[in-house]
């Protein structure tokens, strides 16, 4: 008998603190599986964000650096410039990356920093209790948009992948989802590509992963997957927005 699925070596055995059904755990595992498959666990340095995944440094079984809110790409830049031969990645949520950390992510991409960013977009602030995020959809209720996000009051949700794909320095930008096994498989393939392009020195790479927040969306985990599929996919279309072939 051979094991075809289970905990990858790049993931610590520690139990995640995430709420039941939160897809952060799936995304953690995908990143770890990719690290295993590429054999880069001992060559990797990860940067954890502030937000629900703040404790990512306790889960990934590689060197980790905990950053201030939104600053992970800057911290990763410092690490990568000191160790250009290592694999450096950031793991960030949508409050961290798309709100307080917009300057850092845009300029890391602009400089074509050879790092990989895993951007987890669940359209809400999870850790602080369900406040409106820059990615919260129009009409979506949050604890700081109790009547639903309105265009007049809060404007439009940011489409990070589309925006970053316009930058010359971005080598690989893809948006994926983890709402069913087929999409999880594609998500892993994109994460693997991003790491491979980093290792090949192609430039800045980012994979935006659409994720759920059953707790703060007020849904069961199963309903949350469905909500993601029905509401997030139309506004955040999946696909590769930039590949190194376009960069040349």
């Amino acid at each position: 008998m051979i094991k075809v699925a289970g905990r990858p070596e790049s993931l610590q055995s520690k139990q995640f603190h995430y709420c039941p059904g939160c897809t952060h755990g799936i995304i953690h595992r995908l990143v770890a599986e990719v690290m295993d498959e590429l054999g880069i666990r001992e060559e990797s340095i990860g940067v954890a964000p502030v937000g629900c995944s703040v404790l990512a440094y306790e889960y990934f079984n590689c060197d980790m650096h905990e950053a201030a809110h939104g600053r992970a790409p800057a911290v990763a830049t410092g690490i990568k410039r000191v160790h250009p031969d290592k694999v450096v990645f950031t793991y960030q949520g949508d409050g961290d990356l798309a709100s307080i950390g917009t300057a850092e992510i845009v300029h890391a991409a602009g400089r074509s920093e050879k790092i990989t960013t895993i951007f987890v977009n669940n359209a809400i602030y999870g850790m602080t209790g369900g406040q409106m995020a820059p990615t919260t959809l129009i009409g979506q209720k949050a604890t700081t948009s109790p009547y639903g996000r309105s265009v007049e009051a809060q404007g439009y949700p940011l489409k990070v992948s589309e925006m970053l794909a316009t930058l010359t320095g971005a080598a690989y930008i893809a948006r994926v989802s983890v709402h069913d096994p087929q999409h999880i498989r594609k998500a892993k393939a994109a994460i693997k590509k991003a790491f491979e392009y980093q290792i090949a020195g192609k430039g800045f790479t980012l994979v935006e992963v659409l994720s759920t927040c059953p707790t703060n969306w007020g849904l069961t985990p199963i309903e949350a997957l469905k909500w993601l599929e029905e509401n997030m996919l139309p506004y955040y279309p999946l696909g590769e927005y930039k590949t190194p072939e376009e960069v040349k």
Partner: peptide
């Protein structure tokens, strides 16, 4: 924050 990363490295 780049200093933070580099110092940590």
């Amino acid at each position: 924050n780049m200093v933070y990363g580099a110092a940590g490295s």
